[in-house]
């Protein structure tokens, strides 16, 4: 039998527990997310004196309405937050286990941690500076679905080593979009574009650098001779790409 008296006392009885499923109590506490919905917390007894406080995967589900953890970099940040807040995760279920007499501090630890995870969408702009590929993807999906957008496109049959980040399948020519953050990617893009030309593909190619100033000069020269258009930074792309595409793509 769980003893939840400590939680009730510390919350001055502004907390309720309701059976969600057999053995799973849902906690109604005065802790809300920004959208006014309650923070999801469940308590389960794991052994005589131990309980598990968890969210049954709902924190990540709510986060995904606006922000997906869909890249190694984002996963790294997610697990860093978990570690820093002494939380665990199993298939997306975030949890902390504690002895019953320490339930209040574990509860606060848990809600603080999941609140940080719920705010991950803000990190991309304000804290994390190196989510270039993720930010580029968000921007392209936000602005350019209208250009018949496809992600990860392989123009040459049976040659998956030549990959295009994004295809705008438009007239008069398909547009191949490449994000470039580091030297190896710059080399791969230059090689791919040259191969497409050797294979007589007709296309326009566009490169977006994370920051042109950080790239070695030889890579810039190699790319400049292989592609049609370069944006010197993600900011440049955000500001000027719409005009460029309007001019290049038939209405």
């Amino acid at each position: 039998m769980m003893n939840l008296r400590e939680l009730e006392e510390k919350f001055n009885n502004h907390i309720k527990f309701q059976e969600k499923r057999p053995g799973i109590l849902q906690v109604y506490s005065p802790i809300y997310r920004e959208d006014g919905d309650m923070v999801d917390v469940f308590i389960e007894e794991t052994s005589e004196n131990k309980v598990r406080i968890c969210d049954h995967g709902l924190t990540l589900m709510r986060l995904s309405y606006e922000y997906e953890i869909d890249s190694p970099k984002k996963e790294e940040i997610f697990y860093k937050i978990l570690n820093q807040n002494l939380l665990n995760e199993e298939n997306g279920n975030i949890y902390i286990e504690t002895e019953q007499d320490k339930i209040y501090s574990a509860f606060m630890q848990f809600t603080q941690g999941v609140s940080k995870i719920s705010s991950m969408q803000y990190f991309k702009r304000e804290i994390i500076r190196d989510l270039f590929y993720e930010n580029l993807k968000d921007f392209v999906y936000e602005k350019y679905v209208k250009y018949n957008l496809h992600e990860k496109y392989y123009p040459l049959e049976n040659k998956t080593e030549y990959e295009v980040d994004y295809l705008f399948d438009v007239k008069p020519y398909p547009v191949f979009i490449f994000g470039v953050k580091e030297e190896i990617k710059a080399k791969n893009v230059a090689i791919s574009c040259r191969q497409f030309l050797i294979d007589n593909l007709t296309f326009k190619s566009v490169v977006i650098y994370e920051d042109l100033n950080k790239m070695p000069k030889k890579d810039i020269i190699r790319l400049a001779s292989a592609v049609d258009k370069q944006f010197v930074s993600f900011g440049d792309f955000k500001e000027n790409s719409e005009k460029y595409f309007q001019k290049e793509i038939a209405a």
Partner: peptide, 30 residues
């Protein structure tokens, strides 16, 4: 990869002037 099912799609106004994103999420457990 987590504990929910999801669908994402893009919709636009008929004249292709306005663009929207639609998502569905459903907990696999609840």
């Amino acid at each position: 990869q987590w504990m929910y099912e999801q669908y994402n799609l893009n919709v636009a106004s008929e004249n292709n002037k306005l663009y929207f994103y639609v998502y569905t999420r459903q907990s696999t457990e609840f």
